[in-house]
Simulated scan of single mutants.
Amino acid sequence: MENRNFQMDTQWNIIHYPEKPTGFGILIIGDERHFVDENKCFWSQNEGKLAIIDELKKSGYTIFSSNLYGRNWGSDHAVELAQRLYQQVIRSEILNNKIHLLAEGMGALVAVRLMEKMKGQLRSVVLLNPILSLKNHIELEKEHKFFYKKLMRELTSAHMKDQVTLEKELKNMSVELNFDWSVPIKIINIMSSGKSYNQSKQMQLLLAKTDINPTYIVPEKKKQLGYMMKKFFNQYEKLL
């Protein structure tokens, strides 16, 4: 069996099985385009993402992911479901209970909160083109009225709040990063557009007071992502 799809709280989830499992698991939290349905998911449909999954499966990783209510923007519901998925997978599969976390874009908002809530259950974290601050991301999008309106519609839906309440909360939101610094973190940024350049500048400001040095790569090097992630994860598997 290559993969198994199942539902939790109306949301589809998927487990990708390696041919020769090593007992280590990776939870993938996707970006805006991410989805999981009854028989497939974005990461198995997208050529570049599938190459990463194939590389990680080849190394024996059991990989699991959830639809997480679509464009969740780090909502409480998404964080809670991700935790429940972890618990379900640990119960049903033969896996070490300390897992790796791989999050892309918007998915980093959930990942950062999981790092606080899942202390002792995470082995390492890879963030790909991450959005680390919702407040800063919205400030960037304000320059593009159409995208800002669309983003605010998604946010009010995801967080189940009206726009006035949400904007007030965002205004008071701290931009300080609340990472669990005991978990090893690798950030990879693909410099593919002006937007990714602006996001990387914003990220550098957020990380200024930390010891994290992001890795920057050009789009032509994307084929190396699976290998880079595998190499990073492998460093933190010496202690079970």
Rank of each mutant, 00 (worst) to 15 (best):
D37L: 06
D37K: 06
D37A: 04
D37R: 06
D37Q: 08
D37M: 04
E38Q: 11
E38M: 08
E38F: 10
E38G: 06
N39W: 11
N39S: 10
N39G: 13
N39A: 09
N39R: 11
K40M: 13
K40Y: 11
K40P: 04
K40G: 10
K40C: 11
C41E: 06
C41I: 06
F42P: 04
F42A: 10
F42I: 11
F42T: 07
F42S: 09
F42V: 05
F42R: 09
F42H: 11
W43C: 08
W43S: 05
W43Y: 13
W43M: 10
W43T: 12
W43D: 12
W43G: 05
S44E: 13
S44Y: 02
S44P: 07
S44N: 10
S44H: 09
S44L: 06
Q45D: 12
Q45N: 15
N46A: 10
N46W: 07
N46P: 04
N46K: 09
E47D: 15
G48A: 11
G48C: 11
G48L: 15
G48Q: 15
K49L: 11
K49Q: 14
L50N: 09
L50F: 06
L50S: 08
L50D: 06
L50G: 05
L50Y: 07
L50C: 06
L50E: 07
A51W: 00
A51C: 08
A51T: 06
I52P: 03
I52R: 02
I52L: 05
I52F: 03
I52M: 04
I52W: 02
I53L: 08
I53V: 07
I53H: 03
D54E: 11
D54K: 10
E55F: 08
E55K: 13
E55Y: 07
L56F: 02
L56N: 01
K57P: 04
K57E: 05
K57Y: 04
K57A: 00
K57H: 05
K58Y: 14
S59M: 15
S59W: 07
S59G: 13
S59F: 09
S59K: 14
S59V: 12
S59Q: 14
S59N: 12
G60E: 03
G60L: 02
G60C: 05
G60N: 02
Y61K: 00
Y61C: 00
Y61P: 04
T62L: 03
T62D: 02
T62K: 03
T62N: 00
T62G: 00
T62F: 01
I63V: 03
I63E: 00
I63M: 00
I63L: 05
I63K: 01
F64K: 02
F64W: 01
F64V: 03
F64I: 03
F64Y: 08
F64H: 01
S65D: 14
S65V: 15
S65R: 08
S65C: 14
S66K: 04
S66H: 06
